[in-house]
């Protein structure tokens, strides 16, 4: 499937995939993340069960200290 991941087209061999799958495949290992699927914030406890489908827009925002 092809999705828009952080503003870029990204193609995966299979789909749909859970958010946890995508974080694993893309090696996103950040502790502090905010994830939005099609603009809606997804709670951490739903990463395992939320499916990302063809054409979806996924934003994985890395939160880094400093202010």
């Amino acid at each position: 499937m092809t999705i828009t991941l952080n503003n870029r087209k990204e193609t995966f061999d299979t789909g749909p995939l859970t958010i946890t799958d995508i974080l694993h495949i893309k090696s996103f290992r950040f502790k502090m993340l905010v994830i939005k699927l099609n603009g809606a914030l997804i709670a951490k406890e739903l990463y395992d069960s939320t499916l990302v489908k063809e054409g979806d827009t996924l934003d994985v925002i890395h939160l880094i200290s400093g202010g």
């Binding site: 939005k36 925002i61 400093g66 202010g67």
Partner: peptide, 23 residues
């Protein structure tokens, strides 16, 4: 309007804005 990743110096073009709905 959040900020994430402001340490260091140089290459100001690295600074970007990620937009998703009203964040």
């Amino acid at each position: 309007i959040m900020a994430s990743g402001i340490s260091g110096w140089g290459h100001p073009e690295q600074m970007r804005v990620q937009r998703t709905s009203n964040m």
